[in-house]
Write a protein that binds this DNA or RNA. Structure first.
Lengths: 206, 206
DNA sequence: TCAAATACCTACCTATAGGTAGGCAAGGCG
DNA sequence: CGCCTTGCCTACCTATAGGTAGGTATTTGA
């Protein structure tokens, strides 16, 4: 049997995973700590025992996501071609597993909310990630001379292209039917490569 | 002086506008009817007098947005060139006024939430709008033969590229500073044209 | 002119939110 | 063995949520 400490860590992880899914689905205000607890067969205080407040629980989920973002780079094999490397990085962001979908949805919510909820304190971790994207784009031939605002605008557009898909997938499934959308989902990575390739080759607007 | 009916309609509009801004900023669960009322100098019942329930108030805001979406087409001058027409349509979606920003943010929230909150009933109005985009893309030379999943994937990517900008703008302002981001905001339409142009010219992936 | 309609308000009710206080039983270490 | 820590629970508190009931003063139209 697991030791006491191991058991505790396991529970902690279970809470984190469950909270992540629920926050992703309903948002911070849409989920109560009691709901998280109930979904795990725990009492509300069982949850609060590990994470003192709801705010901190949410923060822990966000921290986990931040960590994933920083290690994202190591998941994609380094290519010699800067354009390919950039593309691979973006493709790696596609949310093709439930965990990744949750991550993307939660990040989108956070971006929407952080202005409303006490300042932008929770977003620090996005910066290095974005800086990396910017640097990678700069390394692509034809982009090194582009203005900073061109680079940023392009990165924003690409992030939108990648992330909007997983965020909107359930809705689009409802609108267009599962059959077509399943095809879209599986074709998406390929389409994204083409899109990114087209943009990179055309170069910045300025 | 305004008649009673006119006065009432005016109040109704004021409530709608205020609710729209608040819902966009904090989401359905993040705003209380009392807060909406307070922001207008009304009592909670003053608001409920016009919109029986919070749910219905939210629905009315959504309805207003739906109407805006359906009339969006008439705002963009019809060009002869299908590619140009498609591009113009997308550019018209860019949220460059507070009202439009609210609209985009609220739609993004709705897309995130509608799975969680009682069914997808609120999304019907997106369909004609999307169908229109699809039809316009199909009309572009080189795209008419593309598979439906290619078209859809492309539309999703483009919607993401357009909408992510206004959704993430406040966060990005916080991260990169207002100076650069202001430049990005004003350069965005131009960059978007280039992006869309590049994609259209390259054609679908299949 | 006077009664019906209506714009908006002041209570008030119930459910639930986040969180505190404190208990209890089962490890783990001296 | 016995004490202390700790994983988790049962109350319980206060604030606020959405919503009902019913009032009042002003318009309006017959």
């Amino acid at each position: 049997m697991a030791s006491r400490a191991e058991q505790a860590e396991l529970t902690r992880q279970r809470i984190l995973i469950c909270a992540r899914a629920l926050f992703a689905e309903k948002g911070f205000y849409g989920v109560s700590t009691a709901q998280v607890a109930k979904a795990l067969g725990l009492s509300k205080q069982g949850v609060l025992h590990y994470f003192m407040t709801k705010e901190k629980l949410y923060g822990a989920v966000l921290g986990q996501i931040a960590e994933e973002l920083t290690t994202l780079r190591s998941e994609v094999g380094a290519s010699d071609d800067p354009a390919e490397q950039f593309t691979d990085y973006l493709v790696a962001m596609i949310a093709d597993t439930p965990t990744k979908v949750d991550r993307t949805r939660l990040l989108m919510r956070e971006i929407l909310d952080n202005r409303a909820r006490a300042q932008a304190a929770g977003i620090w971790y996005l910066k290095p990630f974005l800086e990396e994207l910017i640097a990678m784009l700069r390394a692509v031939p034809g982009w090194s001379q582009a203005g900073h605002e061109s680079i940023l605008a392009t990165v924003i557009q690409l992030l939108g292209a990648v992330n909007y898909h997983s965020v909107s997938a359930p809705t689009f499934h409802g609108i267009f039917g599962t059959e077509i959308m399943t095809k879209v989902d599986s074709a998406f990575a390929n389409e994204l490569r083409t899109t990114v390739g087209a943009m990179l080759q055309t170069g910045p607007a300025d």
